[in-house]
């Protein structure tokens, strides 16, 4: 009997926790409001510029690079991949609505059939396998990376539009949220510790960008050698820096993380293949 009472009271606690659990929209609003409160002068739309939003000098430098991006030839390679027909004569454009225009902002989306998050990269691979082609490796920047460097530009200007509907989608979202707030690596950092709690502060010499907007501008060409980084490659690099062995690029943990992370950017315009330090 005692055990039963204990069990019932535990269930009661769980119920209470579930009731107070914030909805994804509450989460997003509270994160955005945190930034607005601290930086009332920065426009919501400018969150897509990340750390550049805090530094007019860095933004001017960025604008200069973006006038004639030195990595244009790489995007061209991606365009060639996108345009080339599969062996069966079909093309990527045949796999997406509007021939692939203004679609990337709907990804990651939750697939009720497989009960899994589907990233844009996964959708590209599904298009390949459905047409008899071998899938690309998500971590391969020379194939998947380049392909997205062009394919995502077809959605430039589209607002991020992630949907979390139903219990399974919410569970995937919550798992991504947990990852974002979980301390990892020997250095004991979390994504949230820097990009929510310390947004706009300076880490030695670098401004810490705001979480909303971070998912809108991938892939990016980074650093002096303009290395191509998909969003998940960036996750891996960040994990490595805090001394965590990176998880699998294209694996379920990073997919769920991208789901939560992208939701925080809802309402912000996409712009792919930008330059980042």
């Amino acid at each position: 009997m005692k055990k039963l009472i204990w069990l019932i009271s535990c269930l009661g606690c769980l119920g209470a926790v579930a009731n107070v659990q914030a909805s994804p929209e509450d989460d997003r609003r509270s994160v955005v409001q945190g930034v607005q409160k601290k930086f009332p002068d920065i426009k919501f739309e400018d969150y897509v510029h990340g750390a550049l939003a805090f530094s007019p000098d860095a933004k001017a430098q960025y604008d200069a690079v973006m006038t004639f991006p030195p990595y244009d030839a790489e995007i061209e390679k991606g365009a060639k991949l996108w345009e080339t027909s599969f062996k069966n004569g079909k093309r990527y454009a045949d796999c997406f609505p509007r021939s692939g225009k203004n679609v990337a902002g709907n990804y990651p989306m939750f697939d009720e059939k497989t009960k899994k998050v589907v990233t844009f990269e996964m959708a590209l691979n599904q298009c390949r396998t459905a047409n008899g082609e071998a899938p690309y490796k998500h971590s391969d920047m020379n194939t998947m990376g380049l392909l997205t460097a062009y394919a995502r530009t077809l959605s430039d200007g589209m607002r991020m539009n992630i949907k979390v509907e139903g219990k399974d989608a919410l569970a995937a979202y919550e798992s991504g949220k947990r990852f974002f707030h979980q301390r990892r690596g020997q250095l004991n950092f979390s994504c949230a510790g820097c990009h929510i709690s310390n947004v706009g502060n300076v880490l030695r010499t670098e401004y810490l960008s705001m979480a909303p907007g971070q998912a809108t501008h991938w892939p990016a060409f980074r650093g002096g050698d303009y290395s191509l980084f998909t969003l998940q490659r960036r996750y891996a690099a960040c994990n490595q820096m805090v001394r965590l062995v990176p998880l699998e690029i294209g694996g379920e943990e990073y997919n769920n993380l991208e789901y939560y992370h992208s939701y925080l950017s809802n309402g912000l315009p996409l712009q792919a293949s930008v330059f980042r330090k």
Partner: peptide, 17 residues
């Protein structure tokens, strides 16, 4: 030791909640 500490870390409180 480092591997054990990494696993124990999963039980640390979440940040920025």
């Amino acid at each position: 030791e480092q591997a054990f500490l990494g696993m124990a870390q999963l039980g640390y409180p979440l940040m920025g909640n």
